[in-house]
Design a protein around this nucleic acid. Structure first.
Length: 876
RNA sequence: GCUGGGGUGGCGGAAUUGGUAGACGCACAGGACUUAAAAUCCUGCGCCCUCAGGGGCAUGCGGGUUCGACUCCCGCCCUCAGCACCA
């Protein structure tokens, strides 16, 4: 142990030792309870950023904590290495995407090792390697057999900048999830995975994980799935010139059907397409206009004004027999329900707006059930449930009753049925890209779409392709790849040239970690049964509805394939907050500037009051935003590690804020972390000789001095706190507790030269506990101190060290402080034994001088005693 | 608009789930050591009065329940995130 703490030296030493001893390599062991700690698969961009550091610091803290509690911990890592940046690099710099990716992986791997994250590197995987994507293809074929994969010509989300399709999840909000560009609609054949087949199960499964997953994520998924119960109702079309004799609508409010004033359909509805000959030029023009707007939506932030036109067609209300006009409306979407709605302006905001704009009649058919006179006279629709009026034989019934009776009636009469719709759409996985897993399909003129036989997997990507960055997949231009014999008839055929969405790779990667070198199967079900499900999954909130929904779906599909026997892949989920930094934006220049290009003053509180550009003195806006290269507000983890050491960086990242919160990067904070480590180091240095012969495990000395038992109490209280905190996944408060323990250690009135055996025992116990409990935060550092204190050289884990068990009797105080309140206001404090009776406490409280001042001349009404806490004297 | 989080010192954040609000750290101020600086150590640090004993006010705002409310209930305000014509 050096006289001073040199992080670099300590970290290098232990990183080498861990690698040499294969300290973090896990193997299944039925004798041991397993713990699977998983962080989200990173994309190998080439550089680690602070978000990664935070993610992995949390994961490693948990992994260490569980190891130090005797669990068999699986803590793996790999690479989400297919995807656009590699292809962009190929297009722009002419590099080979494979080499580019491999280079990035080795760089980031080196960085992760410098950080000292305890990964089982023997299980490392990378999605772009054929031994991995072979099983993407394997799963695709299985899903094809299960009827979960299908090809369909359909309107897809198209990002004009990325030149590729996007799934609905990836085009959420109408913008590309990667580049933020407004998406367009395009029609093309593409492969879909039938996630909708599991819609109900995905909803129901949430009950199982409710305790472990953040409410926020579950809510987002529920909303995304968007289950809605109602009825399908057929409205007959009068004199249908196009041959379609009825239009089906979906409604959740069949009780309002007597208030229907029109049927409104989407511009792409079959009724429209089959009747074009019938429409006037005006109608056709308007329909085309709506259709065009739909294909190229303007701005999703702005509410689009209602628009539409009367087609001249007529429908019949099956309940009232009333004749209704059929309109085309821009607010009706082809992609939800049936693409047609019954317009009830009295009881639906959108229909109300539409009817108002076009002067259609508004009829009220629902009244508030409580008889209050809230009506739609204020110009709005009354959208709540109530009691029916003007509804023929149904008038007077409450909405709920009417809904079920009217649905049954429709079913009996054959013009409707009970129905459930979902917002969730099937997952489109076709991408017009080179750098992804080829979809294992051959298109044959005679046999149609033919799956590649399992024995021919993997369908390997060619070495390279002409990267133009536009239109079709680059694979289409690679003759050797495209031209193939049909596996069915042996004739000339073409390979599918689209590749899979990279989200396919990341749906099942953590199953592969269990059995990463299996050549026959994605993984051996028996091995997976030991490690899975994941016990704790840690990652950003940004994957709440993409990856996390896909992977839940995949798990259920794998269950149906017989690969796993559980329904939910992760028992608990931790969504970490972003790491943010101060950015400087000049409105005038329209760009972000580096900190040293800006002149700013901070007020006494450290906040920037005014900031101007050094170059020309123009004002700069200061904001705290997610760290990013383009905003120049990022901190390079490598820099931080080389200045302060990996342990200090990790300790600070965990201490600075709760894991779910945003973390504002403050360099002064990390200096505090270093100070703490240096302080403890000096303390160990001072005491290690003195406590070297003490064996804490050999039992507690009987005679305790006051100071020694005070220290022991603090030690055991700290153990209790840390166990509680980890249990509830609080990682910042344990650090505070350990700092308190270290402060208590420093304040204890012992000196190495004069300490008694009992005191040396207390110090050694405190030190050992402190070191073990700090290990999840600063593992290299603690390994070094552990070696210095205990003399064991094989490392903490090999020495069998565990997070200590607290002894309640030691943690208990022999005298406690009791707050004394008069009428709920704190007036004094008295001291008493922990088991003092209520009477004793009351007497002590009343005897207190300060209490007397406040009770003098007043009548004591009653006294409240909370044992161990306080006495409240109520006076009048 | 709908859904779900949040509002506690100058800052990040604690608070055994109804029981002494502000732990721990950062920043700041003062002091010791030093020729000096750094490092280290000590002290102070919610706000306002103060006769230096204390006293009053404080957890976004306004009510309520309670002996007692950051915590529970009602009504607002602000803020962050997600979804957004979902019939």
């Amino acid at each position: 142990m050096d006289q001073k703490y040199f992080p670099k030296k300590v970290e290098k030493k232990w990183q080498e030792r861990w690698a040499g001893n294969r300290t973090f390599e896990a193997r299944p062991d039925n004798e041991l309870e397993k713990y699977y700690c998983l962080e989200m698969l990173p994309y190998p961009s080439g550089r680690l950023h602070m978000g990664h550091v935070r993610n992995y610091s949390i994961g490693d803290a948990v992994a260490w904590y569980m190891r130090l509690n005797g669990f068999n911990v699986l803590h793996p890592i790999g690479w989400d290495s297919f995807g656009q940046p590699a292809e962009q690099a190929a297009i722009k710099q002419g590099v080979n995407p494979r080499e580019w990716t491999e280079d990035n992986i080795s760089q980031m791997k080196a960085q992760l090792k410098t950080l000292g994250i305890g990964y089982d590197w023997s299980r490392e995987i990378a999605a772009h390697r054929p031994d991995y994507y072979k099983f993407d293809q394997w799963f695709f074929l299985k899903m094809l057999e299960m009827g979960l994969a299908y090809l369909k010509e359909s309107e897809v989300n198209w990002c004009p900048k990325c030149e590729t399709t996007l799934s609905n999840e990836q085009a959420s909000g109408g913008i590309c999830w990667r580049c933020g560009t407004q998406v367009e609609k395009q029609s093309r054949p593409q492969w879909f995975l039938k996630i909708t087949a599991y819609a109900d199960e995905l909803l129901a499964g949430m009950d199982e994980i409710e305790d472990g997953w953040p409410e926020k994520v579950l809510t987002m998924q529920r909303n995304w799935i968007g289950k809605s119960e109602g009825a399908m109702i057929d409205f007959a079309i009068k004199d249908s010139p196009g041959g379609i004799d009825s239009v089906r609508v979906f409604t959740t409010r069949i009780d309002t059907i007597y208030g229907v004033n029109a049927i409104v359909v989407a511009s792409g509805h079959p009724l429209i397409e089959t009747n074009t000959g019938f429409f006037s030029e005006d109608v056709k023009t308007k329909i085309d206009q709506i259709e065009a707007e739909h294909a190229n939506p303007k701005d999703y932030e702005v509410e689009i004004e209602k628009d539409g036109i009367d087609t001249g067609l007529h429908a019949l209300n099956p309940f009232s027999g009333e004749e209704l006009p059929v309109w085309v409306g821009n607010y009706v979407m082809m992609s939800y329900g049936t693409g047609a709605v019954m317009s009830v302006p009295g009881h639906d905001e959108r229909d109300h707006e539409f009817a108002t704009k076009f002067g259609l009649p508004v009829v009220s058919v629902i009244e508030p059930a409580d008889g209050s006179d809230v009506r739609q006279e204020d110009g709005n629709a009354f959208t709540e449930k109530g009691r029916l009026v003007n509804s023929g034989e149904w008038s007077g019934k409450p909405s709920a009753e009417a809904i079920s009776e009217m649905t049954s009636f429709a079913e009996e009469k054959g013009f409707g049925e009970k129905a459930v719709t979902y917002r969730l759409r099937d997952w489109g996985i076709s991408r017009q890209r080179f750098w992804g897993a080829p979809i294992p399909i051959v298109h044959c003129g005679d046999c149609g779409t033919v799956p590649v036989p399992y024995k021919d997997l993997p369908v390997e990507l060619p070495e390279s392709a002409p990267f133009t960055g536009i239109g079709e997949s680059p694979l289409a231009k690679v003759e050797e790849f495209v031209n193939v014999e049909c596996p069915n008839c042996g004739g000339d055929a073409r390979r599918e040239t689209d590749t899979m969405d990279t989200f396919v790779d990341s749906t099942w990667y953590y199953f592969r970690y269990c059995d990463p070198r299996n050549d026959e199967m994605p993984f051996d079900p028996a091995i997976a049964a030991y490690w899975l499900p994941v016990d704790l999954y840690i990652g950003g909130i940004d994957h709440a509805v993409m990856h996390l929904l896909y992977t839940r779906f995949w798990t259920k599909a794998m269950r149906d394939l017989g690969l796993v026997s559980f329904d939910e892949p992760a028992k608990s989920l931790l969504t970490q907050g972003m790491v943010v930094g101060e950015s400087f934006y000049s409105k005038k220049k329209g760009t972000y500037f580096f900190e040293d290009e800006v002149e700013f003053k901070r007020d006494g509180q450290g906040r920037i009051t005014e900031a101007v550009l050094k170059s020309d003195g123009s004002p700069v806006k200061v904001a705290v935003e997610k760290m990013s290269k383009s905003k120049h507000n990022g901190v390079d983890p490598d820099d931080m590690i080389s200045i302060y050491g990996a342990d200090a960086v990790r300790l600070f990242v965990l201490f600075a804020a709760p894991a779910e919160n945003e973390l504002v990067w403050q360099e002064s904070g990390i200096e505090g972390a270093v100070r703490f480590l240096q302080r403890v180091w000096r303390f160990v240095l001072k005491w290690r000789e003195t406590v070297s012969g003490i064996d804490v495990s050999s039992g507690t000395p009987e005679e305790m001095s006051k100071a020694a038992s005070d220290l022991r109490r603090k030690t055991h209280q700290t153990i209790l706190r840390i166990r509680e905190n980890f249990e509830s996944r609080q990682f910042n408060t344990p650090v505070a507790a350990l700092m308190e323990l270290s402060n208590a250690l420093g304040d204890a009135p012992f000196e190495p030269e004069s300490a008694t055996v009992v005191e040396r025992y207390a110090v050694r116990e405190a030190l050992e506990s402190l070191i073990i409990m700090l290990t999840p935060y600063a593992p290299h550092y603690c390994e070094e101190l552990w070696e210095a204190v205990t003399g064991s050289t094989g490392g903490i884990l090999a020495s069998g060290a565990r997070i200590p068990e607290a002894e309640e009797s030691v943690a208990a105080k022999d005298e406690i402080e009791i707050a004394v309140q008069v009428n709920g206001k704190l007036r004094s404090r008295v001291y008493a034994a922990p088991d003092a009776s209520n009477e004793t406490l009351e007497a002590a409280a009343l005897a207190d001088e300060k209490v007397k001042e406040h009770t003098e001349g007043k009548q004591i009404v009653k006294m409240i005693v909370v044992p161990g806490r306080l006495v409240n004297v109520v006076v009048k």
